[in-house]
Amino acid sequence: GKPESGAMMTAFSFAGLHMGNFAGPWLRWLYFFFGVAGTAVIGTGLVMWLGKRQLKHAKSEHMPGELRLVEVLNIASMSGLLLAVAGFFWANRLVPIGVEGRADWEVNAFFIAWGLSLVHAVLRSGRRAWGEQLALGALAFALLPLLNGLSTHRGLNHSLLEGDWAMAGFDLTALATGLFLAWLAGKMLRSPKPVAKRPRAAKKPGTETAEAS
């Protein structure tokens, strides 16, 4: 057959590294875990950076435009990206196998969900947008095992009994992700407790006289 070009070989190599094709099952899980952990560290840093700058404008009615832009992009790049991944998996299960361009539909679902999350972040306030997107992501991921069982007849009840750990691992990971996102959504949708100001200490008798002298 025709040999692959250098560019194609390079692309295939990077794709293999990205998918973890070089590793066994346990190393792939570690690869996945540390990838998620690194993303969480970056996302937490962005949120903390934005929160500190928002405190400076807490008394004003409107947030500066550049901070609002950063807030919207943060929401879309984190909770919105999770929704996009969930949309990809839902399309993978719902689009029939025989449909022409099935892979394109999966990719389209990813970018459509991501685009809608950006629009939603623009229309809703920051904390509400975070909570609503995380809640929707929690529902989408938690229902994936059920959707998988209905669409492929290889749900957890079959994969666990048959020792199909690849399928069972996917369903269990989706379920755990849904529960974690639900916990985060609950914290975001819960009204923050007002910070009570500490009363100033009363001056001791005789202090004013001492200060006057």
Rank of each mutant, 00 (worst) to 15 (best):
F14R: 12
L17T: 00
L17P: 01
M19A: 15
G20E: 07
A23P: 01
L27S: 14
F32N: 07
F33T: 15
F34R: 00
G35P: 01
V36Y: 01
A37V: 10
A37Y: 07
A37H: 06
I42S: 09
G43T: 05
M48F: 12
M48Q: 15
W49T: 14
L50S: 07
G51L: 11
K52A: 09
Q54H: 13
K56Y: 10
K59E: 12
H62I: 13
E66K: 03
E66F: 14
E71H: 01
V72E: 08
L73I: 14
N74K: 00
I75Y: 01
I75P: 01
I75D: 01
I75N: 03
A76C: 13
S77T: 13
M78D: 08
M78P: 01
S79V: 11
S79E: 13
L81E: 07
L81D: 07
L82V: 10
L83K: 06
A86Y: 02
F88L: 13
F89R: 03
W90A: 14
W90C: 09
A91Q: 07
A91N: 06
A91H: 06
R93G: 03
R93W: 11
R93Y: 06
L94W: 05
P96W: 04
P96Q: 05
G98K: 12
G98P: 04
G101Q: 04
G101K: 02
G101R: 01
R102Y: 04
R102G: 05
E106H: 07
E106C: 05
V107K: 02
V107S: 10
N108K: 12
N108D: 08
N108M: 09
F110H: 02
